[in-house]
Design a protein around this nucleic acid. Sequence first.
DNA 1: TAGATTGTTAATCGATTAACAATC
DNA 2: TAGATTGTTAATCGATTAACAATC
Lengths: 209, 209
Amino acid sequence: MKKKISEAVIKRLPRYYRCLTELEQEGADRISSHALSVRMGVTASQIRQDLNCFGGFGQQGYGYKVHDLRAALRGLIGLDRTYSMIILGAGNIGQALANYSGFDKEGFYVKAMFDVNVSLTHRTSRNIPLYHIDLLEKYLESNKVDIAVISVTQSEAQNVANRLVASGIKYIWNFTPSELSIPEDIIIENVHLSDSLFTLSYRCRENGV
Amino acid sequence: MKKKISEAVIKRLPRYYRCLTELEQEGADRISSHALSVRMGVTASQIRQDLNCFGGFGQQGYGYKVHDLRAALRGLIGLDRTYSMIILGAGNIGQALANYSGFDKEGFYVKAMFDVNVSLTHRTSRNIPLYHIDLLEKYLESNKVDIAVISVTQSEAQNVANRLVASGIKYIWNFTPSELSIPEDIIIENVHLSDSLFTLSYRCRENGV
DNA sequence: TAGATTGTTAATCGATTAACAATC
DNA sequence: TAGATTGTTAATCGATTAACAATC
């Protein structure tokens, strides 16, 4: 009976993974929690606590094997498989995400895009088909989709979310400013860009700039 | 001598602001911390604690005036003025941010974009000029820029950041996966999209999907 | 073996929640 | 006035940090 992993720890895992990837590229064989803590600007204690939520990946007196720890993190984060995604809304953000090749490398594949306006087709590069949003339910009947990305306009967002949930989508990556209401068992990850930008303006005001 | 506002509180301000904006649009005059807590899924205690970091905006026995509280939050977040921004890197994300009109509405204006490849010009809509990145320093000499957005490729990111800092930029919105090293007095806000996506894959694995 | 570093328990710190007197 | 709800202090909870025995 393992205890629940806190949200704070989960949010840090990708960063550890990122750092370990860099270290491996640099050819490092081993790293101690202390050395990692200096590099990342966190405490060694926290790193050891975090990792030990999932198991003892290190060796006393030696530290952590970079390759092995990275591989373990990869598994923990769920990157040892592929994911199929669809993008709802082929506007600025939707197009940018579709054209970005970085997610492919980690196994996240954009299989299709949907929009109310299909005449945008010529902009969809990388052979990702763009369908009219009316075809969404039909598409989901015959295609397994792990993650749905919502990048429609704010006013359409809740409606699109409802349709996705009704069709059985369990994981949503939301780029609209809306606070979407969804059932408890659906996992949603919000990217509220304006919230992020506003923390910068807060700092400007704070510093009297 | 006011005590320091915690990071957690600051991160919640934009969300309060968003909610109050909705309430005002719905024509609400007043709201109690309890009603707001139900709507936002947080505790009334937390809302009152958070707001009271900045002042007593409510009235006992009555609650908060929606319009006044929203206006106060607007000021606190620093939205009662405008900001000039430049975007470094006219790739997918850079273009999407430049074309997105939502930030304008809150007073964040994209004044220029820079890239190593200027032949992308035809895609810059909304009359935002695209300059070669070699012209960055010259541009900054004669134009006041509040916030610089970094959306170049990962390998260029640190170099671009160094140049921005050298030219006096104090506020950076970073969209690259890099952990940029910058001086202490520079404020950086990171949007690590892959970290966000990875929390979804973590949940998939956790739930055995 | 001696030195280093983990895994883990205990101590500290900070953030959230509860409670309630003040007051509209 | 009575009821409602704030502002604020106190209590609780959880997360971070420190410490150290275990052990490579």
